[in-house]
């Protein structure tokens, strides 16, 4: 194929083929570990179904619960289809405003997911950034960032989210509530979840920065931000990915809790939490489905994502393989 005398120029063909072969092998390795665990496969299917269904809600859902024109108050509080008195139009029944619960769950899930993902994204970027910075610089900067993190860790995330929510509403006023609710929720989750990332990343950064490959990069004059980005970050990101998965589920729960408590999304933009709160009012008057189905969906989603996260943690840890 290649003659050794070709003056040190790498043949393009094997060079291009080699990485592909490698990645296929690596994928299959992780794939095998994935397929060998039935629980993981099932959780992954549930997660994909729920995420897919909610993201494609406008295509999948029979009605649009956000559109007041399609809801009829006459249809309110219908039980699920298979229960006596159920209407074939409403698979899982309707809520107190006559919205189709199945559609509302899909749309609500979408809202919850977007808030969860965006919140976790903010938390991760903030936490990873601060963790890298604190771990690299060390000394007083590190001590300061970590003490702030410690202090924040003594408050439950919900409390911080409530605090941020209160402060923002104090600034913008209640009139703007519906418009700001979305952003406030994302910000609250982002600012209350960053600590975990910062601590994890800071610890690994302190280990990695003393390794010789970082010294070698310093030696050739690579600036510190580039070293952090190109050398340190890829080597500390493993555990972060696991926290990330599990945190998405946690963020969805936090959003649901805040909405349940009434500081989250208003009933006009129902998230899963809002639906559960609405349903809670009717639970003791016999309309169990309004609270049960959103609650079950939330539980299934959180459980499934957590199980996938657990598997990911084991699969990415070479010591456990």
């Amino acid at each position: 194929m290649s003659t050794p005398a070709t003056k040190g120029i790498v043949e393009p063909a094997p060079a291009a083929a080699a990485p592909k072969a490698r990645w296929r092998w690596r994928d299959s390795d992780i794939l095998a570990s994935f397929l060998s665990s039935k629980v993981t496969v099932l959780s992954a299917i549930v997660s994909v179904l729920l995420i897919g269904g909610s993201l494609l809600a406008p295509l999948v859902a029979p009605t649009n619960p956000f559109d007041p024109a399609t809801v009829d108050l006459m249809d309110s509080l219908m039980p699920p289809r298979w229960v006596e008195g159920g209407d074939p139009r409403f698979l899982l029944g309707t809520d107190n405003q006559g919205r189709d619960l199945y559609s509302a769950i899909l749309y609500g899930m979408r809202v919850s997911l977007i808030i969860g993902l965006a919140g976790v994204a903010i938390a991760a970027v903030l936490g990873i950034g601060l963790g890298l910075f604190a771990g690299w610089v060390g000394g007083r900067v590190d001590a300061f960032v970590m003490r702030v993190a410690d202090v924040q860790l003594t408050f439950p995330a919900i409390l911080i989210a409530l605090l941020i929510d209160g402060v923002v509403h104090g600034i913008v006023g209640n009139a703007q509530r519906e418009n700001t609710a979305f952003a406030v929720l994302i910000l609250s989750i982002g600012l209350s979840f960053w600590v975990q990332y910062a601590r994890t990343v800071r610890g690994s950064t302190m280990v990695e920065k003393n390794k010789d490959y970082v010294q070698a990069a310093r030696l050739i004059g690579i600036p510190a931000p580039l070293i952090l980005l190109k050398h340190v970050l890829p080597n500390v990101i493993g555990p972060v990915l696991v926290i990330l998965t599990i945190n998405i589920a946690l963020a969805v729960i936090t959003e649901a809790t805040l909405s349940f408590l009434g500081v989250g999304l208003p009933p006009t933009q129902p998230s899963l939490g809002t639906l559960i709160r609405i349903g809670n009012d009717f639970l003791f008057s016999g309309e169990w489905w309004i609270v049960a189905f959103p609650g079950l969906t939330l539980a299934a989603f959180v459980l499934a994502v957590n199980l996938v996260g657990d598997w990911l943690r084991d699969a990415l840890n070479p010591k456990l393989r």
Partner: peptide, 27 residues
């Protein structure tokens, strides 16, 4: 330039060998 003691720590485990050697060439 410097050659370090532990060859298991002095090469970034996430980088391909070509990129590791290429880093000073580029820098």
């Amino acid at each position: 330039q410097m050659i370090f003691q532990d060859p298991f720590a002095s090469l970034d485990p996430r980088w391909r060998v070509g990129d590791i050697i290429g880093e000073p060439i580029r820098a």
